[in-house]
Each structure stands twice: as structure tokens, then as C-alpha cells.
Design a binder for these strands. Structure first.
Lengths: 104, 104
DNA sequence: AAGGATGGTAAGTAATAACTTACGGTAAGT
DNA sequence: ACTTACCGTAAGTTATTACTTACCATCCTT
């Protein structure tokens, strides 16, 4: 969902202020319909809401959607940390693991 | 990163216990090399680490990687919430927005 | 009512990401 | 030493996703 760069740019832009589709597209390297499609996805995910202003549609972020997403992630993290704790209490390990990238 | 279903399954599986590549592949609808490739990506992201056990490679989750990811997200969220607060203090809005999906 | 502005949708194309088969390489068992 | 088990990487294919162009609808202006 937030993996796409264009989508992140849109969210970033809306974080500063609400904006119309055309305004958003003007600041991005993609066409207006592409922005419309991203906004549709974001709206279905509950992350943005729109309101009509004449023929324009103003989009803004939806705090509730982000809060919901946040608590989902918090849920996952809670479980993960519990699993880590359980594993470490058991394994009590060596330390010479291989890290592929990101050297210690 | 965690947008892919197979990748989420792998992480989910590793949350319960460390596992070898073959074990992971056995529980998934994809081939073993596909799992290897996912593990490579996860390792480069610092989310898993591996250790050699004979010819097998045991993968397990890397708590530090998840913690780092977590704080990045927390950072974003902090900024977003600040923006929300600022916007609401200003706008003081109507309420008849359109929500595309997810009815109120 | 006509014209211009704004934006959603459809259909097709392009770019990206996931997956498969094939191969080679190392470690353990015989 | 030979064989078997296990895994990583390369190369190519398939599937998914993002994007574009074209079109239509709505609202506002005159």
C-alpha cells in the first residue's frame, strides 16, 4: 500500500494541506488519471477522504484510517516481540550469525 | 517490503520458530528458490539473519531490524499526527465527506 | 444553452516484481 | 572418493501493478 513511491508522494503532499487532483498531479511526474487511480486506492483503504468543491474534488488525509493501520501494525509488533522474548529465553544463542548486508 | 503475501507468510512462520529454507518452502505454495530469493531480500533489509548448520541454513527474525523499521514508521506517524492537529485547529470542518468505501 | 474546467473510468501498454527451471557448489554420510 | 541432501544464483517466463491516451460526465461561467 505505502510501498509505491508515487503513493507516498501523494500522502506526503496531503500531509501539508488538502489538495485537488489537478494540484497533486501538477507536482508529480505522472499524469492526472494516474493520480486519480492512486487516490481511489487510498480512499478504499480509508487513508484519504474527498469532498466536492464545485467541479473540483478536494482530497485530504483521513486520520482514522491511519490510526487503524497503526493499531494493526502495533498488534503485529506486540506478537512479534512476544515471540522474540520467548525465543531468546529458550535459545540463548551464539552470536556469529550472517547478516548478508548491513554489517554490525 | 511486507506488502507481498509470500513474504508475510515467511515472516509469520519465522515468528513461531527459526526454520531452514526447505522447511519454509514445504509450507508454501512456491518453489524453494523463490523462498531463497525472498529470504535474500529480507536479509538485506535486516529483518532476518541466517546461520549455517551443516549444509542447512537456519533463518530467524532479527529483532533489531524490526525495531529500526518500527521507529522509522513511528517517526512518520509523529509527523503525520502533528500535521493533523495543525489542520484541524485551522479547518474546523463540515463532516459530509465522501468515503468511497468503508461507510461510516 | 454553449464553452471551458475538472475529474472519474475504460482499455491498452509499459515497467516491475514474483516465480520456475536449470545449474553449480559445499557439507555430510557411506 | 562417490553419492546424497541442501542451498544460492542465473536466466527466462509469467503475473502484477503502474501508467498513458481517449472518452464521457458534471459543474460553473457567460
Amino acid at each position: 500500500m505505502l510501498g509505491d513511491a508515487t503513493r507516498r508522494s501523494i500522502v506526503e503532499r496531503l500531509r501539508h494541506a488538502p489538495a485537488s487532483v489537478g494540484e497533486l498531479a501538477a507536482g508529480l511526474p505522472v499524469s492526472r488519471p494516474a493520480v486519480s487511480q492512486h487516490l481511489k486506492v487510498l480512499a478504499e483503504a480509508g487513508l484519504v477522504v474527498s469532498s466536492a468543491a464545485g467541479t473540483r474534488r478536494i482530497y485530504r488525509l483521513a486520520p482514522e484510517g491511519f490510526a487503524a493501520l497503526r493499531s494493526e501494525l502495533d498488534q503485529l509488533w506486540g506478537d512479534a516481540m512476544a515471540a522474540f522474548a520467548a525465543a531468546e529465553a529458550e535459545g540463548e544463542a551464539d552470536g556469529n550469525d550472517e547478516r548478508h548486508d548491513r554489517p554490525a
